[in-house]
């Protein structure tokens, strides 16, 4: 564990807490893409297949459980909670995310560390996470102004993988055989997808204006 990875995990946890706060405090999920939340649930379920077989540390196991339970709880809330589901922007959240699942799985069948179920699902989860934010970014562009909590949620979600990139650079220089090319390249793509969001988020912060993504 290094400071970059810990900062990344805490930022990731922060994004989830902000989203839970938004949904719980405002009893609304307007501006939130259910499809992105579903993709994240798939990412964590596919990535943490080793939850019950491999034990690295209490931290590692606890965080995996937190990510799986929170992503499933958010999907359940947006689909079935009486008050929340009414605020879901169904007609705006139309990104065909099944293609992202299919594409990521095909890519994982081609590029993986070992041709085993665990490794193919792990690579699949890495590729899927890189593109999982797309439905959410499309929804933000369509839904005019973005409320503060939603903007902060996406900001922390984008920033966490940026910290992981610093972690991979650090591990590359400090560990002999560190070659996590799948995660590193995918992480770069993932963070790059947030570039325009970060730009408009920074502008809104600088001008103290409401966050607005151009359509």
């Amino acid at each position: 564990m290094n400071i970059f990875r810990l900062a990344g995990d805490m930022t990731h946890l922060m994004s989830i807490l902000v989203l839970l706060l938004k949904i719980y405090a405002t009893k609304s999920c307007s501006g939130i893409s259910l499809k992105t939340q579903e993709l994240y649930a798939v990412v964590f379920l596919a990535r943490y297949l080793d939850l019950l077989t491999d034990f690295f540390s209490l931290y590692n196991t606890v965080m995996k459980v937190v990510f799986i339970v929170s992503s499933l709880a958010i999907v359940w809330c947006m689909r079935y909670h009486r008050a929340v589901r009414r605020t879901y922007d169904r007609e705006l959240d139309t990104f065909r995310h099944y293609f992202l699942i299919l594409g990521s799985f095909v890519l994982a069948l081609i590029f993986h560390e070992k041709f085993t179920v665990r490794e193919i699902f792990w690579a699949f989860s890495i590729y899927l996470e890189a593109v999982a934010i797309l439905p959410q970014l499309v929804l933000l562009q369509r839904s005019g102004n973005v409320d503060n909590l939603t903007g902060q949620y996406v900001f922390f979600l984008g920033a966490y993988r940026g910290f992981y990139i610093l972690n991979w650079i650090y591990r590359y220089f400090t560990e002999a055989h560190f070659g996590r090319w799948i995660a590193s390249i995918s992480g770069l793509v993932q963070t790059a997808l947030y570039a325009d969001f970060f730009y408009y988020y920074f502008l809104s912060w600088k001008n103290n204006a409401k966050l607005k993504l151009p359509a």
């Binding site: 990535r47 491999d54 690295f56 590692n60 965080m63 070992k114 792990w122 972690n167 996590r180 995660a183």
Partner: peptide, 10 residues
């Protein structure tokens, strides 16, 4: 697998 190839990151 807790060797080098194991995925110790979240």
């Amino acid at each position: 697998a807790t060797g080098p190839e194991a995925h110790d990151e979240l």
